[in-house]
């Protein structure tokens, strides 16, 4: 690569302006834990880098209007140390090792669009929305599960960026990950689920489809029938049926399919029984505007 260019915008507007000019050529750089690794592996050709680290206002967590608003540049570590819904905290705690969590961001997680994205799965199961913004069209807000269309593929337009994620408050949630080992391991399979104040259920499973998979058919069933033993069993069956896993070096498709059911059941049973409490030191729950 001879003519690589590096941009360091100082505002969201400037970043969007540059992105609009470069289109698909321009790559946002957040924590770089996917981008840099991709470049070094030769999988990613990046000629134009737009570094978001100097853009003010893109990070931070705040409660507003019944939602937790999370800036795109918020790191996994910051979320882990903040008072956030259980599934989100747990998913952040399992991303890579501490070094990765201090760098990796929510925006980068969504931008990467990996079916193994732990935080994406947790956010989907929390019924989170995403805010996308472009210079030309301003902002739009859509459910996170509608953002992903395939491995590394999203509906985010070439001139758009992720600015914020909105997580509805008041949902009880849980997350469960199986990796090849217990830390610094991309998931072999993982899942998250939540129950809203009105009893509505959401379930998402990772590594069992080309995208982090929301199991809407099971959700509908549970919304209609509640978390009875039979309904939970049926939901697990649906989860197994609705996924389309592949086999790779981490594990086999059969195992992943089986776990789609097992984890669905496990998470729903836990949600039925207890509300996972997340105790975190008070100082770290200070709100950042």
């Amino acid at each position: 690569m001879t003519d690589t260019l590096y941009y360091q915008p100082k505002s969201v507007d400037e970043a969007l302006q540059i992105k609009a000019e470069l289109g698909a050529e321009g790559t946002f750089l957040a924590g770089g834990t996917d981008v840099v690794v991709g470049i070094r592996k030769g999988k990613l050709k990046v000629a134009r880098t737009i570094d978001l680290s100097q853009v003010p206002g893109l990070d931070g967590i705040r409660r507003h209007d019944g939602f937790l608003e999370i800036g795109a540049m918020t790191t996994h570590k910051a979320l882990e140390q903040h008072d956030v819904p259980a599934a989100l905290a747990q998913s952040c705690e399992t991303v890579g090792g501490p070094q990765i969590r201090y760098l990796g961001t929510v925006g980068g997680q969504i931008g990467t669009a990996s079916p193994a994205g732990d935080v994406s799965v947790a956010l989907i199961a929390l019924k989170a929305d995403v805010e996308l913004r472009s210079a030309a069209r301003g902002t739009r807000r859509l459910p996170l599960d509608e953002v992903f269309v395939g491995p590394g593929k999203t509906v985010i337009a070439d001139d758009e960026m992720v600015t914020r994620v909105f997580v509805p408050l008041g949902r009880r949630s849980d997350f469960y990950k199986i990796g090849k080992r217990d830390a610094v391991a991309i998931s072999l399979v993982m899942a998250a689920a939540s129950v809203g104040p009105a009893g509505d259920v959401a379930i998402a499973i990772g590594c069992v489809a080309p995208v982090p998979l929301r199991i809407k058919r099971a959700e509908a069933l549970l919304d209609a029938r509640g978390l009875s033993d039979e309904a939970v069993d049926e939901a697990a069956t649906i989860a197994r049926e609705d996924c389309s896993p592949i086999s790779d070096h981490r594990g086999g498709a059969d195992y992943r399919r089986a776990m789609a059911g097992t984890l669905t059941k496990r998470l729903l049973s836990r949600l039925r029984e207890v509300t996972p409490v997340k105790a975190k030191p008070a100082e770290s729950s200070a709100e950042v505007a």
């Binding site: 090849k180 080992r181 217990d182 830390a183 610094v184 391991a185 991309i186 070096h249 981490r250």
Partner: peptide, 16 residues
């Protein structure tokens, strides 16, 4: 070899 690295060739880590 499909996992000729230490990312996909997993060795037990500290928590294991």
């Amino acid at each position: 070899v499909t996992n000729a690295n230490l990312e996909q060739y997993k060795i037990a880590g500290a928590v294991d």
